[in-house]
C-alpha cells in the first residue's frame, strides 16, 4: 500500500515537473519568428522581447564607421526586416548566412538586436587546400563595392 502511495506521489511530482517544462517548451516551440510573421505586426510587437530568424540578405550587411554597429536585413524569402545591432557578432555571422536576432522592434520599424546568433547548416567540408581559413573574412558590403 505504501509503495503504491509513493508511486502516486512520484507521478504527481513528475507531472508537475513536466508541466513546468511544457511551459518552457511552449516558449522554445516558437523559438523565433520569421520576418513574414512580423510583417504588419510591427506596431503591436513594439517593445516586446522577440527573436527573429532568417537569412542575412546578401549585400545588405553594413558596418558603421565606429566598427561596432551593424546594419543588415533579415529575410525568409517573402518578407524583409531591417536590423540594427551594436556589439560584437559571432565569427560565423556573415552576409547571406542564417542568423537569429534577439531584441525589440523600435518605433521606426527597425529591429534593434541585443544579441546576434549565427545559425549554420548541418554541412561540413574541408577548407580548401592552400587557402588559410579566416572566420572574419567577410567584407562589409560597402567596402566590397569599392573598386
Amino acid at each position: 500500500m505504501r509503495s503504491r502511495r509513493f508511486i502516486i506521489g512520484g507521478v504527481i511530482i513528475l507531472a508537475a515537473l513536466f508541466y513546468l517544462i511544457y511551459g518552457g517548451m511552449r516558449q522554445a516551440m516558437v523559438y523565433f519568428v520569421t520576418p513574414a510573421e512580423l510583417q504588419g505586426q510591427e506596431a503591436k510587437s513594439q517593445g516586446k522581447f522577440l527573436r527573429v530568424g532568417g537569412m542575412v540578405v546578401k549585400g545588405s550587411l553594413q558596418r558603421d564607421p565606429d566598427g561596432l554597429t551593424y546594419r543588415f536585413q533579415l529575410t525568409d524569402g517573402s518578407a524583409v526586416i531591417p536590423v540594427r545591432f551594436h556589439g560584437v557578432p559571432p565569427d560565423l555571422f556573415a552576409d547571406g548566412k542564417g542568423a537569429v536576432a534577439e531584441g525589440k522592434i523600435g518605433a521606426d520599424g527597425v529591429f534593434v538586436a541585443t544579441t546576434i546568433m549565427a545559425k549554420h547548416a548541418e554541412e561540413y567540408s574541408p577548407a580548401e587546400h592552400g587557402k588559410p581559413f579566416s572566420p572574419r573574412s567577410f567584407i562589409p558590403a560597402a567596402e566590397e563595392k569599392r573598386p
Partner: peptide, 13 residues
C-alpha cells in the same frame, strides 16, 4: 559559432 554559450531552443531544452 553561434555567439552564445546557451540558448533555450527546443533541442537544448
Amino acid at each position: 559559432t553561434w555567439g552564445v554559450w546557451w540558448t533555450w531552443d527546443a533541442r537544448l531544452t
